[in-house]
């Protein structure tokens, strides 16, 4: 473990908590893409299958349980409890256009052709693009509530911090995983225009306006 990865995990945890609290407190999931949340739940489910078979540490197990529980709780809030506030008309990104390439790529580019490894690879590639429906929805509605933009900033920062973690591990532990690194860079790059707007606007108290 290193400070970059710890900060990344904390940022990730913060993002998930911010989103849960936003929906729970405002009793509304307006502006939130249910499709992205479905993709995140799929990501954690396929990545953490080793939750019960491969004990790494208490921290690792704890975080996996929290991420799984929080992502399914968020889906329950969006599609069940507060489904009347779910903005279906703006959450229209065709996720099959993400699932197909991710599936093909995970079958072609992986470390080992075993079910567990393929599912792990699939989850890595899926996570890289899982935010697209949410970013698409924000661009369609043309704006995002400030709490939603804080969620996005924390979520985007987490994988950016993981990139620093991979640089650290490469030099300090000679460890690297090209699949995770490639997907992590793509994932972080997708947030770039949002990061720019967040830093130039939201931090000055203005609303986040994405060019529609």
């Amino acid at each position: 473990m290193n400070i970059f990865r710890l900060l990344g995990d904390v940022s990730h945890l913060l993002a998930i908590i911010i989103l849960l609290l936003k929906i729970w407190k405002t009793r509304s999931c307006a502006g939130i893409s249910g499709k992205s949340q479905l993709l995140f739940a799929l990501t954690y489910t396929t990545r953490y299958l080793d939750l019960v078979t491969n004990f790494v540490s208490v921290y690792n197990t704890f975080m996996k349980v929290v991420f799984l529980a929080a992502s399914y709780a968020t889906i329950w809030l969006i599609y069940m409890k507060f489904r009347a506030t779910y903005d279906q008309n703006h959450d229209t990104f065709r996720i099959e256009f993400l699932l197909l390439p991710v599936t093909i790529l995970s079958l072609v580019a992986n470390h080992e052709f075993t079910l567990i490894e393929i599912l792990w690879t699939w989850s890595i590639y899926l996570e890289a693009v899982a935010i697209l429906p949410q970013l698409f929805m924000v661009s369609k509605t043309g704006e995002a509530e400030s709490i939603t933009s804080h969620y996005l900033f924390a979520l985007g920062s987490y994988r950016g911090l993981y990139i620093l973690n991979w640089i650290y591990r490469y030099y300090m532990e000679s460890y690297y995983d090209l699949i995770a690194i490639f997907a992590g860079i793509l994932q972080t790059v997708l947030y770039c225009d949002f990061f720019y707007l967040y830093i130039t606007k939201v931090l000055r108290g203005q609303r986040l306006q994405l060019p529609a």
Partner: peptide, 10 residues
């Protein structure tokens, strides 16, 4: 690529 890495990252 990493050898039999224990997948210790989240």
């Amino acid at each position: 690529p990493a050898e039999e890495d224990p997948k210790d990252e989240l």
